[in-house]
Nucleic acid binder design. Structure first.
Lengths: 341, 341
DNA sequence: GGGCTTTACGCAAACGCTTGCGCGGATAAC
DNA sequence: GTTATCCGCGCAAGCGTTTGCGTAAAGCCC
């Protein structure tokens, strides 16, 4: 017969043979099944210990059709926001005896699809996903749904209603941010927003508009520009904003990276930060405290906690505590953190 | 019989039944085995497509004793250095059809051991590990060795000779760093080093000493202090260095986090950065460019590339291109990046 | 001591897939 | 026409584990 890898690991079969009992007895003994005598249990456990027996999980997974593994798919593992989130996910997964399978899409829709496919093949029990910024088509997630693999989206959530999601209430955070600028006397406030299809972009825009309305100020659509979050895109957006007739004195940027790029651009244009122009951003990175020209304030999104929340939601889905078709969108509160005084 | 989860997924058995052929034929047809006729292959593939058949990987893994999964164990997923490394690891794993299982130790030896245990049970094909800074005992890795699961250590490498490892040549980087400071006229250079048992600490110390020797300067052991990398530890270390009779005008810190903490401490002591005291660090974070008081220079360690290298080494170990007992320590070059002029 | 329940264990199927081998039939070689 | 070769496919074992059910032996009650 074919020679399998056979890493020489002992199996319950071996234990059974040595003890002259059946494999089922061994299996049950190791599980402390009530129908097994104390003596037998003891003997089995002793031998298992001695042989350094270790249950072959792949066999169990296969047999049970469950892997105690959750897949996480993120655009960019090295981005601070996401790596904090991963940390939160891993921590709560770990304390619930789940393991984490990882994949990054690099915002590439094709790769995103492949990774989802691979995770499905790996038979993950569920997924936590933050979609790429270019993803327009959601067939791959539909596949998961049909395979009854629950998915919890977080942060970058597709604009659908029948999904489970955890995200931050950016609207309220944005309102706080614009409030802050208005109180500092700014009247022409630009916004470098993200791609239109992202919910996060819509929320930011809505917050921006609502804040103005609250102060009975007229909303000028010219002041919001959608960018692609690259440095070049940010430059273009800044160039546009600075070219407007109305003089923009403050800009709300999509995240800290955009803010830093925007700051660079402003410096190139010989503008003085926090004087000629003030930036407010969303804290996707822990650098704010150390940055030379940090945004005057930023909206904290608590990535670690979002990761935890997403994982907890997935786990309750997996445990059946939460019905698969009971779609919930957990909104976490964001909070404006003011850096300069 | 017991009702298994049975997500309704089609199996090769079903395909076989529908086509009135044997499962083995189906299996082989799907693998394009030469011994299967073209007509049969076509029929099988067509039906598979139609039924939306998808191979049950857990069954394959179990059957083959291989999971095409590698485990990565790191101290802290959210640290920039490690998250870049993860990104590099995931990318090369992905392009070699491997998947990545993730765990973080939080520098806790017990948790480290549990994660290794769990990965072993998951039957990962191999591991990539950066050990916790408190880890003194390596039994868990010995277990992996006995289970013939290859491990590649990287960055934080245990001080053993019979291991596979990828790390950065910190010695040369440190020499460059100290050279830099000496050329700027500094003569009393402190070093806040990491925990003694880390190879990385030893290399830094060695580089420091060699650089002095190169310039025919006497090495004063008082100037190197081992810290625990916490903010408090850094404060203590700074306090110590500043209390010395010889006036320290420059400090080489273990990494950017330590540097930033040290900067904070120096500021509290009313010292002017880059005038009263100059810092040089190791770039474990991408923030240097944006920081208010960045270290004057830092030694770049290329985490992404280290991750790639570690993964490639592991893969060649797994493919048998590299003998398990042929222990190699790949040293990558570090390079001093100068921030101020 | 007969009938009953309980205790403690074994039997064997099942999970989905791969693969060595065997075998019938067609084709080629001589 | 006989033999060797090859093509195309089926049989069945095996990977390690779990678990429904069957069944002896032991214990209990009356």
């Amino acid at each position: 017969m074919r020679k399998v890898v056979s890493s020489g690991q002992p199996t319950i079969k071996e234990i059974a043979k040595r003890l002259n009992i059946s494999v089922s007895t061994v299996s049950r003994a190791l599980h402390d099944h009530h129908s097994i005598g104390l003596r037998t249990k003891a003997r089995v456990k002793a031998l298992a210990e001695e042989l350094n027996y270790e249950r072959n999980q792949t066999a169990v997974y296969f047999q049970q059709g469950k892997t105690f593994t959750i897949g996480i798919l993120l655009p960019e593992l090295s981005e601070a926001f996401f790596s904090s989130a991963i940390s939160g996910i891993e921590d709560t997964a770990y304390s619930n005896n789940y393991t984490v399978l990882l994949g990054q899409s690099h915002d590439d829709e094709a790769r995103e699809k492949q990774i989802i496919q691979s995770m499905k093949q790996h038979r993950v029990d569920g997924c936590i996903v933050s979609i790429g910024k270019n993803t327009r088509n959601y067939d791959h997630f539909e596949m998961l749904r049909q395979a009854r693999i629950p998915v919890v989206f977080f942060d970058r959530v597709p604009d659908l209603h029948d999904i489970h999601a955890v995200s931050c209430n950016l609207e309220s955070g944005t309102i706080q941010a614009v409030d802050f600028l208005l109180k500092k006397g700014h009247r022409v406030i630009g916004m470098i927003n993200g791609p239109e299809q992202l919910v996060a972009s819509k929320e930011r825009a809505t917050g921006y508009i609502k804040a103005l309305r609250k102060h009975r100020l007229k909303y000028d659509p010219e002041l919001i520009v959608n960018a692609d979050l690259t440095a070049a895109g940010t430059d273009t957006a800044m160039e546009y904003l600075l070219s407007l007739k109305r003089k923009v004195t403050a800009v709300v940027t999509f995240n800290d990276y955009v803010a830093m790029d925007a700051v660079q651009y402003a410096l190139k244009r010989k503008l003085e930060i926090n004087k000629d122009i003030t930036f407010v951003s969303y804290a996707n990175t822990p650098v704010s405290g150390y940055t030379a020209f940090p945004p005057a304030a930023s909206v904290e999104q608590f990535p670690y906690e979002q990761g935890q929340a997403a994982t907890n939601m997935l786990l309750s889905l997996l445990n059946g505590e939460h019905a698969l078709n009971d779609y919930t969108n957990t909104i976490m509160e964001s909070r404006l953190v003011i850096h300069d005084r």
